[in-house]
Write a protein that binds this DNA or RNA. Structure first.
Lengths: 151, 151
DNA sequence: TCAATCAGGACTATCGCAGTCCGGATAACC
DNA sequence: GGTTATCCGGACTGCGATAGTCCTGATTGA
């Protein structure tokens, strides 16, 4: 199975949550609202900030805010931010130093079309697409306690 | 980066190699021709046989043979045979017992369109497509020693 | 009968990821 | 100016999956 890191899954949840609220939100708040452990949320947000998907404000009353609308964030960007560039194997990158069996390997660079196809597929789906069709019950946070904690 | 197992990479190499020769071929022969360690080749071939991509003949003068032409093998099949069904996270499968934060998780099942897109992309590329465009030098085995060993 | 080969599994070591934590910097508030 | 809340960047650890090897048994041809 093509393993996508759990962190990326969390990232999607966090980003969707960010989009649902006005103003900045703190890591603890998002953690409470999503049920994801706080340190993990913090890690995800830091990574997303490094990838320019969210912007951060430090200090008291600080927090995170979406940089663009969900509909402007293809899932490919999220994956790239968390997991690094989208490519299927180490053997693939064009300028790599080459695998051990250079001369023998009949597949050098042949994964490129596959990577391109995947990249195109992932670039065509935005977070808004993933959000669409959610059950209304899941659209808003469910636990009142979580809601209040999020404030 | 979307990690594809190395075994899958090997599988592609092995399958292409299988397509280039008449009759059955043995694991040691393919190992010598590709430069992949013999036990690993054997493992890959066994897995591919389980996935019906190749068929095996036991006993002396036995070996492996392609079940279909390269152009009839989408890369998705190879990945599925080696890595299991193509899906991005454990949180995804429809009938799973659900993740811990069931009620809270706002993304339940939302990866499905992404998985579908990836599956389509991978189903549209065959091994023949990957083989196409290979440098002639890489098309045939390069080492005479390897060639003879393959016999 | 013997040799070559696949079948199926067990086994180990290595690697990456998940998740946590800490010291520091920054900014608002009192 | 001090205090508090928050982000920043990194280090660290444990777990799990993968890679890779090996062994025993079954099958087949000579």
């Amino acid at each position: 199975m093509l393993r996508l890191s759990k962190l990326t899954d969390y990232a999607v949840v966090v980003l969707v949550r960010l989009s649902g609220m006005e103003g900045v939100q703190t890591s603890p708040g998002i953690a409470a609202a999503t049920g994801i452990p706080e340190p993990t949320v913090a890690k995800v947000l830091k990574t997303l900030a490094a990838g320019d998907l969210v912007c951060s404000q430090r200090g008291a009353k600080g927090g995170y805010r979406l940089n663009r609308d969900l509909s402007a964030i293809p899932i490919a960007d999220v994956i790239a931010a968390i997991d690094g560039p989208i490519a299927l194997t180490a053997c693939v990158e064009g300028s790599s130093t080459g695998c051990e069996s250079q001369g023998l390997c009949p597949m050098r660079g042949r994964w490129d079309p596959v990577n391109d196809a995947i990249h195109k597929a992932l670039s065509g789906i935005t977070l808004a697409d993933m959000q669409r069709g959610l059950l209304p019950a899941f659209r808003a946070p469910v636990h009142q306690a979580a809601l209040q904690a999020a404030q």
